[in-house]
């Protein structure tokens, strides 16, 4: 089975490989895995707290070409979107864009899960910050 040109392109020139500080309150980290093939994927987003826009995204994936391509594409797609908008990215969109064969669909599922996990982590941090702020009875910020 041959990889599609788009998969090969993302595999050879992965976009946005790297990491961001996990402790940063603006950063959300999603770590997901596909145990049946042993893949692990980490996707991170940095969100502008004012606009809720994802300003930067980084990923690192240990896995097959399709898993790397799916997460690389996912970082490209989330950048510039609002958090809510990024949640609407579906694995089927990734499958279509990369022309993934049926046996590699789980790689796209992994990428979708990684986006959701990263956003979930960021939201948790926001919630934690808010409750801290209210506990300190700090004046509300805009």
């Amino acid at each position: 089975m041959a990889y599609s040109e788009k998969v090969i392109d993302h595999y050879n020139n992965p976009r946005n490989v790297g990491s961001m500080p996990k402790e940063d309150p603006k950063v959300g980290t999603g770590m997901v895995g596909a145990p049946e093939c042993g893949d692990v994927m980490r996707l991170q987003i940095r969100v502008n707290p004012e606009t809720q826009v994802i300003e930067d995204a980084k990923f690192k994936t240990f896995g097959c070409g399709s898993a790397i391509a799916s997460s690389s594409l996912a970082t490209e797609w989330v950048k510039g979107r609002t958090v809510e908008d990024a949640l609407s990215i579906k694995n089927t969109d990734i499958v279509r864009e990369l022309a993934l064969p049926p046996v590699k669909i789980h790689c796209s599922v992994l990428a979708e899960d990684a986006i959701k996990a990263a956003i979930g982590d960021w939201k948790r941090k926001q919630g934690a910050e808010e409750s801290q702020a209210s506990a300190a009875a700090a004046p509300a910020e805009d």
Binding site: M31, I105, H106
Partner: peptide
């Protein structure tokens, strides 16, 4: 209980962290 490929399997987060670090 186990399906190849398309069915998602869950992995505990601590394991993922560990595997990720080992891979790194």
């Amino acid at each position: 209980v186990r399906k190849e490929g398309q069915t998602k399997q869950q992995a505990p987060p601590e394991l993922l962290e560990e595997v990720f670090e080992l891979n790194e």
